[in-house]
Computed example of a mutant assay.
Amino acid sequence: MDFWLDLLFGNAIGLSSMIVIFVALGMISFMGGFFVYKAFKDPETN
């Protein structure tokens, strides 16, 4: 736990890298959810 607190609040590089990781995970989950939403909403055209 001390390692994560030091990484988050110890220096600016650790904080910015964690922000980048969380923003990337948020974007991935948003795009995945949007893809699933569009896949279920649109009817299949075969």
Results as ranks from 00 to 15, higher is better:
I21N: 00
G33L: 07
T45L: 08
A39F: 12
P43T: 03
M31T: 09
S16G: 04
F35L: 12
F30A: 15
G14N: 03
L7W: 04
M1Q: 07
A12R: 11
F35N: 03
T45I: 07
E44S: 06
F34R: 09
F34W: 08
M18Q: 03
Y37P: 02
V23C: 00
G10E: 00
A24T: 15
I28L: 15
Y37G: 09
Y37L: 10
L15K: 06
G33C: 07
L8T: 11
T45A: 01
M1V: 15
K38W: 09
G32A: 13
A12S: 13
A12N: 04
M31S: 06
A24R: 06
M31C: 12
G32R: 14
G10K: 06
S16P: 04
N46M: 00
D2Y: 13
M27K: 12
M18I: 07
A39I: 07
L7I: 02
F34E: 03
L8E: 13
L25S: 12
L25T: 13
L8I: 09
V20F: 02
S17T: 05
I13S: 15
Y37M: 09
L25N: 15
N46K: 05
N46T: 00
S29I: 15
L7C: 03
I21K: 00
I28N: 01
F35T: 07
L5N: 03
M18K: 01
Y37T: 04
K38S: 07
G32V: 06
K38Y: 09
V23L: 02
F34L: 12
D6S: 12
L15Q: 15
N46L: 04
S29H: 10
K41T: 12
F3Q: 00
D42N: 13
P43W: 04
K38Q: 11
S29A: 11
G10S: 05
M18R: 01
M1D: 07
K41L: 12
M1Y: 08
F22E: 00
K41D: 06
F40Y: 09
F30Q: 07
I21L: 03
F9T: 10
I19E: 00
P43I: 12
V20M: 00
A12L: 11
M1S: 13
L15P: 12
F30V: 08
T45Q: 01
I19R: 01
A24E: 03
W4Q: 10
E44K: 11
G33S: 06
V36A: 07
S29W: 10
G26E: 01
N11S: 15
F9I: 06
L7K: 02
D2I: 10
F34S: 07
F3L: 02
A39Y: 10
L25K: 15
S17F: 06
K41P: 05
V20E: 00
W4C: 14
E44L: 10
D6E: 14
M27W: 10
L8Y: 14
D42T: 13
D2F: 14
F3G: 00
A24V: 12
F30D: 04
F9G: 11
L8F: 08
M1T: 05
M1C: 10
I21A: 01
I19Y: 02
G32E: 05
D6N: 14
M18Y: 04
W4N: 11
N11Q: 09
V23F: 05
I28G: 03
I13C: 14
G32M: 05
S16E: 02
P43F: 08
F9E: 05
V36F: 08
D2E: 11
K38R: 08
L15S: 13
I13T: 15
F40K: 06
L25Q: 15
L25Y: 15
I28E: 01
I13Y: 14
